[in-house]
């Protein structure tokens, strides 16, 4: 197990290093003067100089790379350039990260049990109309962009029902329940987008698991359906679900940019868009890297969880990704 964890960590660090190289290279390979493009054609020379400085584009690429690496490990990305001029970038990122975490937590609390239940039911009622309804509605919704789902929810829930709030951010000092009430619509949007995907993965895992020898043996030993599901099917069937949830966590934290805009929620995605609008490269870069690091930690956690659930997986994970 220790060897497995070590190997998995090394792989994660390699990925992080490659990512730093890519993020350093992007502005350097952009044709023309990136500062001018970012600041706009009518920018004054002073503004251009400022942008250039914020990009650090005058240093050699190797210096830029070491600086970025240092920033990641010291959690110091300098000062914000225009989103909140003068404030440390990481202060902004951490505030936004906290907000995103609230939204992600509520979304997961609502979505995961429902999606797993949907998947289990669909697998148990395989090839009936119940199965088809779950799979097809899930599929239809999961292909819709998140902001489209959000806009539909605004029109069909927020406008007719006072209970649902248009703004996801509760007034400062609100109780937890009020905060949850405000976050409900974006969380439902996440449910719409992810239900079908997670349910489908769970369904597939459960069908495999129901067909397996150990399940037949368990039934033959005279265990009830409920016992078989709890002790034998679930443990094996949920491994793919855990893996997928791990890979989706990064997306939940940073990929819901447009959804956060629709509900005016000050999460990480929103911060990144504000950084784009005001050409604040330090904030943009730190935000994107934060999302990537969360993704890596989440997939790491998922791999460890799977290794714990199924000792056989310890041999495979990290071998050939």
């Amino acid at each position: 197990m220790l060897k497995f964890i070590a190997r998995r960590l090394v792989l994660g660090l390699i990925t992080l290093a490659i990512l730093l190289v890519i993020i350093t290279l992007i502005p350097n390979i952009a044709p023309g003067d990136p500062a001018r493009k970012i600041a706009g054609g009518t920018a004054t020379p002073e503004r251009l100089a400022q942008v250039n400085e914020s990009l650090g584009l005058r240093d050699p690429v190797s210096t830029q790379l070491t600086n970025l690496g240092q920033s990641v490990f010291t959690l110091d990305f300098g000062e914000s350039f225009s989103v909140a001029a003068g404030q440390p970038v990481m202060d902004l990122v951490f505030t936004a990260l906290g907000n995103s975490a609230k939204l992600v937590a509520l979304s997961l609390i609502i979505m995961v049990p429902l999606a797993i239940l949907g998947g289990l039911v669909a697998a148990y009622k395989k090839d009936t109309w119940i199965d088809r309804t779950i799979v097809n509605t899930g599929l239809a919704f999961s292909s819709i962009p998140d902001f489209v789902a959000g806009v539909f929810l605004l029109a069909f829930l927020a406008v007719p029902f006072e209970f649902f709030k248009v703004q996801a951010n509760a007034p400062p000092g609100s109780s937890i329940l009020v905060q949850i009430q405000h976050l409900l619509l974006p969380a439902i949007a996440v449910l719409m987008v992810y239900f079908g995907y997670i349910a489908r993965i769970t369904r597939a895992g459960t069908i495999t698991s129901l067909d397996a020898d150990y399940t037949r043996t368990a039934f033959m030993r005279g265990l009830t359906t409920r016992e078989v599901f709890r002790k034998h099917v679930a443990r094996n069937a949920l491994q793919p679900t855990v893996a997928v949830l791990g890979t989706q966590l990064g997306y939940l934290f940073g990929g819901m940019v447009a959804l956060e805009i629709v509900f005016q929620y000050p999460g990480l995605g929103n911060l990144i868009i504000r950084a784009v609008d005001r050409a604040d490269y330090p904030v943009l870069r730190a935000g994107v890297l934060t999302v990537a690091i969360i993704y890596m930690l989440a997939t790491l956690a998922a791999d460890l969880l799977i290794a714990w659930m199924n000792p056989r997986a310890r041999l495979n994970i990290g071998e050939d990704a």
Partner: peptide, 25 residues
């Protein structure tokens, strides 16, 4: 190349797109 692919896949496509479009215009 496999490692590079893995690194790129670790960022949501939409974020990477924002970053690239922002720097390239």
């Amino acid at each position: 190349l496999s490692r590079i692919i893995e690194a790129i896949l670790s960022i949501p496509v939409i974020l990477m797109a924002i970053l690239v479009v922002f720097t390239f215009g």
